[in-house]
Simulated assay, not measured.
Amino acid sequence: MSRRRAVWVSTSTGTLGGVATYVRTMQRTPLWGEWDIRHVATHRDGSVATRVIVFLGGATAFVRELLLHRPAVVHLHTASYGSFARKSLLAWAARGARVPVVLHVHGGAFRDFYRAAPWLVRRYVRATLQMADAVVALGETWQRMLQEISPGARVVVIPNAVRPGAPVEQPGPGETVRVLFLGSIHEAKGAFLLLDAWRRLGDARRGPPADLVMAGNGAVDEARAKVADLGLADQVRVTGWVPQRQVETLLRGSHVLVLPSFAEGQPMALLEAMAQGLCVVASSVGGIPDLIDGECGVLVPPGDGDALVAALCTVLADPELRSRLGGRALDRVRERFDVDRVWRAIDGLYEDVTA
């Protein structure tokens, strides 16, 4: 068995969402070469037939890696529901081949998935988590949740990773503030709550002019229709999905990121905004409080439109506050979420589980 070969299993790096972004980020670190990592995709956006074909092809490639190359460790990136079903099967296959398993839990719906599952499925989830040599949680909030589900599991915290940049320059008094929503345009992400709040800002705001860009896939046409119905076409632009290479351009051209989600894991969009020194307004759900607090951002209760309006009014009217919060958010990225710190944490975990 090679001591320096690992297999990563996740969605395709071309898939929309945070897991694909995370994998692409880690591919550009020394970890990839030092552990001779092979990436196997078991999911891709597309029709049911496409997803089935991709999973069967990925599962075949995974078994081939186990049998022919005997990796030192397999690292499976899972979310909930179908994702967990797919990755858990591969985890048990690796266990049968006596290859150490790292199960990396992403996504904000895992607790709901577990609670809604039938008794037998919950028992299977607990057994799978306990079987893994290590379960990776993105933050302390999710570590506690996973430990409650499976008390016998070994759960370690390794956060998502991002490369810190230079802070954006905030506009001065009277200059236009550009606000960005970056993520799936759905109710669960608070996209339509945000549009309602933005309409109310016209009456409540006493600060500078502002505009809003909403970038992401999902209910794009519905969001555009609502923008028109609310009379916000001169203030709000819904771009739809944008390729990853344009995300940084969007971030660098913005001053505030707003993410009023109802459920989250540890959103990469929020981390990417922190890494550029944007002022962040987000809901206090899931793993978001593991990323920001009142020292480096503004948290609002999920679903609270009044609190969202008040938070946006505050940051839009105060350039010094935006700069201070954005600077502290960037400092936090450098201290905790810098990709150079995170890949070394994974390297240390591999050394531990393969010892």
Score class of each variant (00 low, 15 high):
G172F: 14
A153Y: 05
R163G: 07
V179W: 02
L180S: 02
G174S: 09
G165A: 14
L180A: 03
G165M: 07
P171I: 06
E169D: 14
P167Q: 04
V177D: 02
P167L: 07
A166G: 10
E169M: 14
R178C: 01
G165N: 04
P164E: 08
S150E: 05
P159Q: 07
P159K: 10
P159M: 07
E175Y: 06
G165R: 12
E169F: 04
V168L: 05
G172S: 15
A166I: 13
G165W: 01
V155R: 02
G165I: 04
S150K: 10
N160F: 01
V162E: 05
V179T: 13
R154E: 12
V179H: 01
Q170K: 11
E169Q: 15
I158M: 07
G172R: 15
E169P: 06
G174H: 09
I158T: 06
R178W: 00
G174R: 10
F181R: 03
V177N: 00
V155T: 08
A153L: 07
A153E: 06
G174N: 09
A153I: 10
G152P: 11
P159D: 04
N160V: 08
Q170C: 02
G174C: 13
V168A: 07
P164S: 09
E169N: 14
A166M: 09
I158K: 08
V179L: 07
V162F: 05
P151S: 04
Q170T: 13
P164D: 08
V179C: 03
P159S: 13
S150F: 12
R154G: 12
V179P: 04
S150Y: 09
R178D: 02
T176I: 13
G174A: 13
T176L: 09
V162W: 01
P173K: 11
V157F: 08
R154T: 15
P164T: 11
F181E: 01
L180H: 02
R154W: 04
A166C: 11
T176C: 13
I158Y: 03
A161Y: 03
P171G: 11
F181M: 12
N160C: 06
V177Y: 03
P164Q: 09
V179E: 00
T176F: 00
N160T: 06
G174D: 04
